[in-house]
Design a protein around this nucleic acid. Structure first.
Lengths: 156, 156
DNA sequence: CTGCAAGTTAAAGTGAGGTTGAGGTCAAGG
DNA sequence: CCTTGACCTCAACCTCACTTTAACTTGCAG
């Protein structure tokens, strides 16, 4: 069993490039677990590095820690993700990225069209009123993803 | 001078689709100014609607209120943006959007390449370590825009 | 005059994703 | 034995972009 060495928090923090305080925070919100040494110090298996890589990748895709916790919770026994899990989850991430990308492209195209017009109408300009982007550039779908949209539920 | 009617905060809020509390907040952080009635109530010229449209468009492009304040401050006399101002500023926004878009595309492509590999290496995987994207997919530039990147200044 | 909507202020609250600090424990080295 | 450094907990603090609350004033209709 000499190969199953457990890592202290400082080393995990250093190797993952994530502050020790963040690791404790992740544990407090249920993203991470830790074994403890006899004196109460956290001891992590090497697999925590993969789990942290997964968490960071998910953050880069725009998921909140709550969503990441849910994604990890879909894994049987809350184990660290395997290749199969990764394939399944990354497919939904791809869709999310596609949505974000098309939203930004719609916004950029709106900007290009607007340069020189100077309209900036609150009601009709795609830039200040992205809810209307669909009406101007296509149909149905709203192009700007929720995460990129200004809050304007009460707009007139 | 009958054409220069001044609008009360409630009407501006309604027409701009921005809460009155947000308008007061904008004023408190120096994004907006207001004239006052004899009894101390805010009175806005119609041009505030254009200014608000500008602010909202800038937010949609991903600028913080501080950056928007700076952009507005580059206008002589802090006037409300004209078509010429709009043209100049929107060109820099377009560059910013381009940067955001290419960052997300690089991330998506990394995701596609990674599906099935399951590597998720903290050091080499483009997904968990977007600082290295440049090394894997091209040269020089970092593809993931600052605003979309996980905080990892102390990475090893 | 009464009543009510709409406005005013300062201060506190929200939520995400953490960081910082105080005060304490523990193992190893000199 | 004593110090140093890594670790522990818990609570407070941070930024951003606002919203909410409390206590109060004003304008206008009936």
């Amino acid at each position: 069993m000499l190969g199953t060495e457990l890592l202290p928090i400082g080393e995990v923090a250093h190797r993952a490039g994530i502050a020790a305080s963040a690791l404790r925070y992740y544990e407090s919100v249920g993203l991470l677990e830790s074994a403890r040494s006899s004196s109460g110090r956290r001891r992590y298996p090497r697999s925590v590095l993969r789990r942290l890589a997964f968490i960071r990748a998910a953050q880069n895709v725009g998921l909140s820690l709550g969503e990441i916790r849910s994604a990890l919770a879909t894994l049987p026994e809350s184990r660290t993700p395997t290749v199969a899990d990764w394939t399944r989850l990354s497919r939904t991430w791809r869709a999310r990225l596609d949505e974000q990308i098309s939203g930004l492209i719609a916004l950029r195209d709106g900007l290009t069209k607007c340069i020189g017009c100077g309209c900036l109408s609150l009601r009709t300009c795609a830039l200040s009123n992205p809810r209307d982007v669909a009406g101007q550039f296509g149909e149905g779908a709203m192009f700007l993803p929720e995460t990129l949209r200004a809050h304007d539920e009460g707009a007139d």
